[in-house]
Amino acid sequence: MKRQAVDTAGTGAREPEQPGVLIPWVRRYNLLVTVIFGGRRGALNSTLVAASGARSGDAVLDVGCGPGVFAGRLADAVGSGGRVVGIDPSAPMVEYASRHAGRAANCRFVLTSAQSLDLPDREFDVVTSTFAMHHIPEAHRRTALAQMYRVLRPGGRLLIADAFPSGAVTPRVTRAMARMMSHGGARQEMPDDPMSVADVRQYTGALRDVGFTEPRFTDVPPWTRYLVAERPTA
């Protein structure tokens, strides 16, 4: 039976038929994040907010917002004069984020996917996506990046962060993390290098193709690598 499209924010955005890997179990996801990052996730979010360049008065789009924790941190950074829109293709995630992080007047959440954005051109100063790009079907990732470029204003900044364990992490832990982060614990064949599905360096060519500046990469041990790129001003 075909799933009916949903608009949870009255924007006209509709849930796509093939949004990618959906994570419906919000509380389990939050527990998973706590286990993987321990007490480091708050510090990591602060690092990523700073790296995004989001500042007072900015409009920010958070792609693959999940339960809205990072979007909430962005909302704090842009203040009452700014605004944050979080999007996710998982209805339970959007509902949870709307009840929690969405309490802030400058933060709202929309059920849609990165490759199907129904948002105006040049609407945002910053676009972020943390631990979400690998959930988008590989065939649609370039489209998703093109959509992010479209909604960014000239001079706007893109930040994409994803899992990338340091060399100190054992292969067994790496594979377990990759399975959980990439596919919600589903049983399936894993590649020889399981973290390759999340390595943000894979987007370099697509970013160039859609018009972004050359991405810059930074590692945040023990679990994260992020890139920053801009939409040129001319």
Rank of each mutant, 00 (worst) to 15 (best):
A77E: 07
A59E: 14
L61F: 13
F70Y: 13
C65A: 15
A59V: 08
G81T: 14
V60R: 12
P67M: 13
G86N: 00
G66A: 14
C65H: 12
V60G: 12
D58Y: 09
V85F: 06
S90P: 05
S90K: 08
D62M: 09
A77H: 08
G86E: 07
F70W: 10
D62V: 05
G68N: 04
S80R: 15
F70P: 08
S90Q: 01
V84S: 05
A77V: 01
V63K: 11
V63A: 14
D88W: 05
G79T: 05
V78Y: 12
P67L: 11
L61C: 13
G81Y: 06
R73F: 10
D88C: 00
C65D: 10
I87K: 06
I87Q: 08
G81K: 08
F70T: 02
P67D: 15
A75I: 05
V84Y: 04
V84P: 01
V63R: 12
V85C: 04
V78K: 11
G66V: 10
G86F: 01
V69H: 13
D76E: 15
P67K: 11
G79Q: 02
G72K: 01
P89T: 10
G82F: 00
V84W: 07
V84T: 05
D62S: 04
G66C: 06
G82C: 04
G82S: 05
V84D: 07
C65E: 10
G79C: 01
G72D: 02
P89D: 10
V63W: 08
L74F: 01
D62Y: 02
S80P: 08
L61P: 09
P89R: 03
V60T: 14
V60F: 09
V85P: 03
G82I: 07
G64S: 05
D58I: 01
L61T: 11
D58T: 07
V84C: 07
A71L: 14
G81C: 05
V69C: 03
D76G: 12
A75H: 04
G66P: 10
V63I: 15
V78W: 10
D88K: 02
G68I: 05
L74S: 09
A77K: 04
D88L: 07
G68Y: 01
L61E: 11
R83P: 01
G64P: 02
D76P: 02
D58V: 06
R73H: 15
S90T: 01
V78A: 13
G72R: 09
V69W: 08
D62T: 09
G68A: 10
G82P: 01
A59C: 09
G64F: 06
G86D: 00
R73T: 06
A59Y: 06
R73N: 14
A77C: 00
I87W: 01
S90V: 00
G64Q: 08
G66S: 10
S90C: 04
V69G: 14
G81P: 02
V60C: 12
A59L: 12
A77S: 12
G86A: 02
S90D: 03
A75N: 02
G64V: 08
P89H: 06
G82Q: 03
D76V: 14
R73D: 15
S90H: 04
L74M: 10
